[in-house]
Design a binder for these strands. Structure first.
Length: 272
DNA sequence: AATCGTTCCTGATAGC
DNA sequence: TGCTATCAGGAACGAT
């Protein structure tokens, strides 16, 4: 599933490939992926617009058009956004296709249909964007900021870190990977974390995300980058999808349990 | 205000 | 073998 490192990888790919491209025809194989306005109006509105740049906020991709409108795309679990050449085979779950004048195309595919595409002139005014918390890779994210963001939270640290209004962009994989690096159990109550553990957690989150971006993300399921290729951070996972294997830190067996309805991988020995 | 349960969806897989 | 039931999960939403 695409989380911050995957979405950032796609952003970098597309920001290299798309600016300057003029949108021609738009095909809606599953028009329901477009939210807010009907597909017909959507395609009419963006036809002829030129792509200016591709940016990101949390797990949202923002494609800025020269008309002043912005496409806001969330990939959710199985969304893939890739630039294709004319002769490339369309993905089985292609939902929305943007054709360019040079014959290439931008394809949004999405097996489970959870993903969404919106069109707006004021992305920062969208409620789901407005309420997002701190970007963990921006310089303003310091240990003191993390401490302040976690203050007053009583729930399990895993749940709080998944809350996009606290930190923006972490999902199941990177929360679990960061907690293992920090030596903190996912179930640990947030209000019992000491300052030095919050410092460790801050550093674990930052390092995990940076290393994952360097490895072009984790392809555990359907994730592909902006050119349709897999990432390789999954081979560096310390806990995620490693049930029954030995902990790379202490040798104990990694366990998987359902916690609050989500698969949770962790090492019961070195995470407390 | 924080937190919980439900919902969306389809392909893979477990179980019979 | 072939069918059916179960499961995975980000985040909006409604309820508490």
């Amino acid at each position: 599933m695409p989380e911050l490192p995957e979405v950032e990888t796609v952003r970098r790919d597309l920001n290299r490939l798309l600016p300057g491209m003029v949108i021609g025809q738009v095909q809606g194989l599953f028009p329901g992926s477009v939210k807010g306005i009907g597909f017909k109006k959507f395609s009419e509105t963006i036809q002829g617009a030129k792509i200016v740049k591709v940016s990101r906020r949390a797990k949202y991709l923002l494609i800025l058009l020269d008309s002043g409108l912005t496409l806001i795309i969330h990939l959710k679990m199985t969304g893939v956004l890739q630039r294709q050449q004319k002769d490339d085979p369309l993905p089985r779950s292609a939902r929305i296709i943007f054709y360019f004048e040079d014959g290439t195309r931008l394809v949004f595919s999405d097996q489970r249909k959870f993903g969404s595409i919106k069109l707006t002139s004021e992305p920062n005014e969208l409620p789901e964007i407005k309420k997002l918390g701190t970007e963990p890779l921006e310089s303003k994210f310091t240990p003191a900021v993390l401490q302040q963001r976690l203050a007053g939270r009583k729930g399990p640290v895993k749940t709080v870190l998944l809350d996009q209004t606290v930190l923006a962009g972490l999902g199941n994989i990177y929360v679990l990977e960061a907690l293992h690096r920090a030596g903190i159990a996912p179930q640990r109550s947030t209000d019992t974390l000491k300052n030095d553990q919050i410092k460790k957690l801050h550093s674990a989150v930052t390092r995990t995300l940076k290393e994952a971006i360097a490895a072009r993300g984790s392809s555990v399921d359907t994730y592909r980058d902006g050119q349709g290729k897999s990432g390789w951070f999954q081979v560096k996972h310390r806990v995620y999808d490693r049930e029954g294997q030995s902990c790379k830190k202490c040798g104990h067996t990694i366990v998987k349990e359902m916690f609050r309805g989500r698969g949770t991988y962790w090492c019961p020995k070195c995470q407390r």
